[in-house]
Every structure is written in C-alpha cells, then in structure tokens.
Design a protein around this nucleic acid. Structure first.
Lengths: 329, 329
DNA sequence: CGGTGGTCAGACAACGCTGTCATGCCGCCA
DNA sequence: TGGCGGCATGACAGCGTTGTCTGACCACCG
C-alpha cells in the first residue's frame, strides 16, 4: 500500500480509502490510485485489515470426518451460509477424538475465528474454559454437550425411530428388532431408548430385541441369524445408522432373509436396492444451515439464552418397510 | 500479552519467549509468566503472529460442491495433509461458476493463504494474473487449465474407460454404448475420446454409439430405448459418471433391459444393487492427498518445473459387467 | 474582506505479536 | 582489580492496515 501511495503521490490512507470505496476522495485522485493499484498488482492484505478490525470474518466447522456424507452435507450447508455473509469457512476433522477436538478448537480460538460449529466427539465440555475466556460463540450439532448451556441443533431421534416403528406396525409387523450403534454415542442411546419406549408404548409383545454396536458384518449376521431362528422370529429390523443398514442388507442377502427393513439416515441409491429401502431421513443440510444461522445470529449480537433446536426427521417410504417377512406363527 | 507482561513484571518480549518456548528465560521467570497466562486465560493471537511472520499456515481447497462425495473425499484427504503439517484448511465452493471461482480465489489470495488446491470450473486460467502477482502456489485437480503451466493432478480417464471397454469385450460384448457427461467438461471429453479410441482400437463393429449430456432421466431412457430397439441392439453400457450411472440404472429397471453396465466412479452400495455394479474407481482421497503433497512441496521451496501427475484408476469388478444382454443376432 | 463550513488529504497511532539489537548483571580469569 | 564472555531481559521497530484527528484549500456569504 505504501508502494502504491508513493507511486500515486498520495498517502497510504488515501489508497486505503480508494481500496475500501470510502467517500472523500476526488474522482481523479481515485482514478490515479486505481491505475497504480492495477499496474502494481496490489491486493489488500486481509490479515492486517482484519487484525485492525478485530474480526476475522471466518467461522469454523469441526466434525469427525469430512468424507462422511452426513458431515459433508453439513459442511456444504455451513459453507454456503458463510459465503453468503462474506465469511470464509475453516473445516477441521477431530477424527472422533475428544483430545484432538480440544486441540483443534484451541487452535481455532487462537486464530480468532468469529465462531465455531462443532459436532462434538463426546459430551464432556472439554473446551468450555477456552471458549468462555475467548467468548467465542459456538453451536453444537447433532449431539448435546454438558457444561455451560450452548446453542445446540439436534435431530429428532425419538420421533424418527418412533415413525419407523409405527410404520412397521401399521404394515402388520409385531416382531421388530433394533440394531443400534455403539452406546458410547449419544445419538445411539437416544435411538435405542426411543425404540424401547415406542415398542412398549405400542404394546408389542415380548421384550424389545436390541443389539448395540460396535458391530462387524459378522456380528450382525450372527445376531440376525439368532433372531430369525425359531418361532418368535423377527420380521422387521430397524437400524441405527447408515453403516449398520449396509451391514444388515449384506447379512440379509447372505442369509436370504425376507426381512422388512427401515434404515436410519437416507443414502444415495437407497431407491435402487431391491426392495428399495425405506429410511428415516435426517436433513444434514438443514441442520448445518440452522446451526450456521444460529451462529451468525450470535455474531450479530443476539444475546438471548442458549437455545436448543430439534430438527424434524422424515420417513421416506419405499418398499422395504412393508410386510413380507417370515410369518411369526 | 501486554497484560500478562505487566502482571508478571516482565516485558512483552519475555512473555513471547515463554509462549513460544524460546530459550533464554530463567525457569522461575518462565514459571511465573505461565502462571499469569493461566490465570488470565491468555492466548496468543495467531493473526498477529502470522502477520509478523508473513506466513498464514493456511491452505485452501476450492471445489464445485462440498456435498458431492468425490469432492468431500478430496476435502478430507487435503485436510488431513494440512493437519499433519499444522496448517488449517479453508474450503470454499465455487458452485461450478468460473466467475465465482475467480472471486473465491482472489479472496483467498487476499487472505494470503499459503497455497491453494483447486478443482477448476473451466479451462480458462482466469486467476492466472492474480496468482502470478501474489506468487501463491496452486495445484489443479481433476482437470487441467490453460495458461501458465501449473502443478496438476489428473485421473487416468483414458485408462479407466479403456479398462471398462476391455472388460466388456472380454465378456463377449460387441455392441457397447457410452453415456457421457456434458462435453463442456474436460473429463467428459476425455472419456468420450477414450471410448471412441478403444472402440476402434479393438475393432468393434459399427460406429461407436455415444450420447453426451447434459442428460435428464427421460433423455437417458429415450436414448436407451432407441439403442436397444432393433437388430443392432446395444448389450452393454458404459457411463461417464456417477449421476449418469444412476439414471441408466433407473431407466434400465423401468424398461426391463438386461443390459450389462460399467459405471464411472464407485459409489456407496454399488455392491448391493442387483446385479452389483462394476465400476471404474478413481481414488479421490489419493488424488487429494497427492495434490496436497505437491502443494506442500512447493511451500517448502520446491522450485522444479510444474508437474502433471496422472493417477491410475481401478476397475472394480462386480457382476454387472458380464454378458447377460439381449443377443445381437 | 473576514469568517464559516465543507471537501479532500495526510500524519499518526494502534491492532498484537516477533526479530534485532542493546543492556545489565554475574562469574571467572589473568 | 580490570576485562571479558555469557546469560537473562528489555526497548524498539515494524508487519500492513484503518480510525481519528488535524490541516490545507476553496467557495460562499454577509
């Protein structure tokens, strides 16, 4: 900027004014400055600018794994909201490790990002102190966190599972089982509880059959074999996430079981599997958008108490939920 | 930092030394400073630090759409490389628009990111001047760009298509058609050319049947109907990307065509479709990793001439490639 | 013709940190 | 006892901007 100023025989401040379209520069002066800027290929150094202004116009997204479609859709949505508001997005993976997540968040705070959206690795509010000290706004997604209340965007796990159970029951199923993810995950526990509650609420016979992860394809197959072996055979299965849906589909094909199935999370080509798979759809893009909007509201000075939003799920009915199972009697 | 210095009765420079683990501070002094830092919740302001040092320890990735699995895998790989090297990653979508891409790149250059990985929207080197002036290293991915030679990481489109054609021919197919994407895309043109060349190279009868995009499900279905109607019916189809594979699968199901199929790009659950879909797999993670590595080599001072790397593809053989088609005679 | 107000432009400090150089102190040796 | 070297620490400038304040100049009015 100093170079431009010298070349154009003006002060740096005037160059600054021109660059930022500030008023109070005579058109001919501005033109002269612009010409020099063009000639010298000058670009304002945003780092310096933002330092002066105290804001970085940058937000961050911390997730487990960017390649996971759920997170990548969240990422795309958050990036979009950021771009609309002239902010940049830093994305970072914590790879599911709470300690790495903490380190990542601290690094982001050191960079003075304006705010952070996090899908937390666990429920310990391990970065609370840092966030507090720096008063960096944060929005948690998908899973709540203990400690200081913060803005949180969750998915309606309970409603999603309930809609799945109800759908199966409406199609005549009475013997429904649930494959959940590792109960270390909050969402997995939520979905399990929802399954058990709905199972009992609807007065289905017997104890709810539940198998929680971590699963392997072999363990899923083994469990499935056990459940379909005998008089009280399961006729329908609900899965707790994407990966498990895949495992169940494979096992089912292997064992030639005509089970009904409802998967949690929609997936590409679910419609092309035979039979097309009915799923509980959470809308990651909507969740990401909502989280980003919450964050930006805070950045604009919203001081209201922390808020938890529960996003609805939607049952996408395809063919796999209808009765076609092994008769129970 | 000044606050800490005052509180600990030392100079800011000493605080700086402690924060950065520089030698030349007496242990007891360091300890006192650390205590104050802890008490005050001080965090070094990386923006200021990086400004002083001239590097931002930040790289950027510019793609079309973060939610697209191809790009999200690239993103995850690039982020990983960045994290390993203590850099942050800014991700940005250009949504396929060259002008937006240009704006995005200019913004990144203004932020003085240390380097950029781009999947370019088109072949016009529209950001050349800016990159040149700022001497920001850039690596192009998936598609080359005209203008100044730059590091580029491509996929072996020719080899991928050739392996697909050869696989089909090996299974007795003689009448193979190709559905490509919009020829505005460099990769689409590459794959088309590869198809035509291989078709002729192997001495397959007739003119190669090719349909280029943009496609709609309806247009795909119509074309497919035409090609399978009559004596010279097509028995196998090769698709030019993911989306087209999906469209063909749907059309095929609709029309009840027992076509063989090889898709470009692997996709989740390709193994679960009936029959499981044989695909040409490009490895987005490997491409992203390679691109990031190239970029970091430049950041470390590698001054060698721009380099183009072509990453191999792999044919993942499932069932859909074998002969099962309508007899040609 | 002096005063007033408006327009354009520049000087200067500051954002928070670090690189460079200077300083003070201590111990050691001749 | 004077000189020297090494260690711990600090003063200061500067990274590239922008906010604030000041100043020069001009036009206009009474």
């Amino acid at each position: 900027m100093a170079d431009v100023a010298a070349e154009a025989h003006v002060s740096v401040k005037t160059v600054s004014r021109v660059v930022n379209h500030e008023p109070g520069v005579r058109p001919d002066t501005a033109e002269r400055v612009r010409a020099v800027i063009e000639r010298l290929g000058f670009r304002r150094h945003d780092g310096a600018r933002l330092m002066r202004q105290g804001r970085t116009y940058t937000i961050a997204l911390v997730v487990e794994d960017l390649a996971n479609p759920f997170y990548s859709q969240v990422g795309a949505a958050v990036e979009r909201e950021a771009r609309i508001r002239q902010h940049q997005l830093i994305t970072a993976s914590a790879e599911g490790s709470p300690s790495r997540e903490r380190a990542v968040i601290e690094a982001l705070v050191s960079r003075r990002v304006d705010g952070i959206v996090v899908v937390p690795a666990d429920e310990s509010a391990s970065s609370d102190a840092v966030l507090e000290a720096s008063s960096t706004p944060i929005v948690y997604m998908d899973r709540p966190v203990r400690g200081t209340p913060r803005d949180t965007v969750l998915s309606d796990n309970h409603g999603g599972v309930r809609s799945a159970v109800e759908h199966l029951v409406a199609h005549g199923h009475r013997s429904i089982a649930f494959f959940g993810d590792d109960p270390a995950f909050w969402t997995a526990r939520q979905r399990r509880e929802a399954f058990v509650a709905t199972h009992q609420g609807l007065g289905l016979p017997g104890t709810p059959r539940v198998s929680m992860g971590p699963h392997t394809p072999a363990s899923v197959q083994e469990t499935l074999r056990r459940w379909t072996d005998g008089l009280e055979s399961v006729t329908a299965v609900i899965t707790g996430n994407n990966r498990i849906t895949l495992a169940v589909l494979l096992a089912q094909r292997e064992l030639r079981l005509p089970l009904s199935l409802i998967g949690y999370d929609d997936f590409e080509l679910a419609a092309l599997i035979d039979p097309p798979v009915t799923v509980v759809h959470q809308d990651p893009a909507a969740m990401g958008q909502k989280a980003a909007q919450q964050l930006f509201a805070r950045l604009l000075g919203d001081e209201s108490p922390a808020q938890t939003v529960v996003m609805p799920t939607r049952l996408i009915v395809r063919a796999s939920g209808v009765r076609r199972g092994v008769p129970t009697r």
